[in-house]
Design a protein around this nucleic acid. Sequence first.
DNA 1: ATGAAAGCGCTAACAC
DNA 2: GTGTTAGCGCTTTCAT
Lengths: 343, 343
Amino acid sequence: MTITDVARHAQVSTTAVSKVLRNAGGVSEAMRAKVRAAIDDLGYRPHNAARAMRGRTFTIGVLLPHIRNPFFADIIDGLTDEISASGYQAIMVQSGGRDPAAERRASDALVDRQVDGVFWVAPACARAQLEQLADDTPLVVLGRHDRSSRYDCVLDDDEVGAELAVEHLIGLGHRRVAHITDSLRSRSTALLQTIRAATYERVMTEHGLAEHIAVASTSYTEEGGYEGTRELLSRDPRPTAIFAGSDQAAFGALAAVHEAGLTVPGDISVAGYDNARVTGLAHIALTSVDQDGALMGRTAGRLLLERIGGRTAAVRFSVTPTLVTRRSTAPPDPRLEGRTPDW
Amino acid sequence: MTITDVARHAQVSTTAVSKVLRNAGGVSEAMRAKVRAAIDDLGYRPHNAARAMRGRTFTIGVLLPHIRNPFFADIIDGLTDEISASGYQAIMVQSGGRDPAAERRASDALVDRQVDGVFWVAPACARAQLEQLADDTPLVVLGRHDRSSRYDCVLDDDEVGAELAVEHLIGLGHRRVAHITDSLRSRSTALLQTIRAATYERVMTEHGLAEHIAVASTSYTEEGGYEGTRELLSRDPRPTAIFAGSDQAAFGALAAVHEAGLTVPGDISVAGYDNARVTGLAHIALTSVDQDGALMGRTAGRLLLERIGGRTAAVRFSVTPTLVTRRSTAPPDPRLEGRTPDW
DNA sequence: ATGAAAGCGCTAACAC
DNA sequence: GTGTTAGCGCTTTCAT
């Protein structure tokens, strides 16, 4: 079942069919109707590989570090929603996130498959690699702070978000506020974990709490939050609040706190980041920085379609996060603040 | 950079290069070496679309209902692990899971992109649709119980798993054990949610607890577990234990229980199903039926590669689940069992 | 064992 | 506005 069959069945040329298929101009209404009828008659579907040889694949490649984070699901739902009417199909590939070689392979795999555009969530590679990719194919990057004139960026203001969380905890009366970050760093300050961690330190310092800065450098996963919290809890005195750099890490933190026989927020307050749609449904409703993943996903989809459509000027879309206060944060127990007086 | 460039650089024919590329026979060792050198020299990567026109795409299509379930992540990790050395690349597409038309579109999208094989996780469509797909391309299905001679099945024994969970709760002394299931049903008994629910009813009945059967039919998601539990808690007398058909639903259940001012396992025991790798790290460590997602993913990968390699005989791989007991289940509070005596 | 050449199904430049 | 036709890069006969 090829374009030739459709052309024969409709008694027209393959060119005409091709034009109708691509919604290209230069076809009469009558022609369009005839061709559409033939396509429906025959149940014809264009051969993607053949199209890829000369033109579009109508495929958008999505690179995700992994699929364990429900916040990514929010983003993808937004993207899918935005592109669903366009005839484009999103295909997702795991980039691994922590192994540069694996990440590169995943990116190459999409280029090799001739995707019409790439949506890359939280790339860990160097900016140069992104720009190189952007020269090949339209690119939208989510969650990086470095600027580029060759691809679009969608991000939230992580400095504002981290500040909201830390100010919230300090405002509740906490002094020993600890932080869990992701150990993956680049030399630049482009990675969101770097910015969240730096902001944490800045706000602590501004409040005269520099001596209480305590960072566990693990990862933004449940395991990372769990391990990081175990480490933080072993310090003396232990923190009374933990700002985890992601909700997943915060959930791991809750597990570690509970396992240590402590309560949240009685003994320790815990705040997260992302506020994925399900975060409010957690057993301990988690205080979290909200960055509207669905909106970011939708925007990324729109920007990518625009780029595929020919736009070359770079766009930077930044979401301002807000704090959603729930039950996992509360003022510290006065007895836990500072060392026990001597008298 | 095409195969012609490589051929010219190596001073051989394109045929020779093609053979080396595909590890086909009929090439001398010297030829092979020359060609490989040229490929390395030029940094050549085969053009996937061109290959797809005549041969393989070296791509495996994965259909997932969504990416919100960490158990799926376990499965995908297993799959990726298994196929990583084979030169195949997995691309994932969301099937939506609940809308038959969307599911069909997702499946078509993979066929259109000429994937060499499809791995379909928890399809909701009719068996006929699976067989039709299997006629087009090698297919491995995960989580369906209907048998077919045309594709391979990977599944766990959901009857055993559900029995383990319900027997565990009854064994602890619970009588009012409720169940949360997924409302998506097919006419056949092929869907795992149907089997888990039917087994729950069977075991309850066998223990003379038919009158206490209580099923909330929502979905296997956090939201589904939350809504289902709210409904179950509104009954009088309310259940003392809930067997949720998935861990995600169980997490939603925990939230609803907590929100109702009740405790787990003090007032209500909660058991789940799947035991994804992170389940043990939840704030309330969840009792769950373990079905080794990574093993299932690895097996699916192996079976698919075998099928792509030419096997046509159908294989059915079934995992026997086990119960992992954690802190979310305990004997019921005696005061909650039965109505208060009259004396 | 090696190479020449015919397509695979489509798009786009070009002719009418 | 419509049709003819030359490729896109690869695999695969079929000669040699």
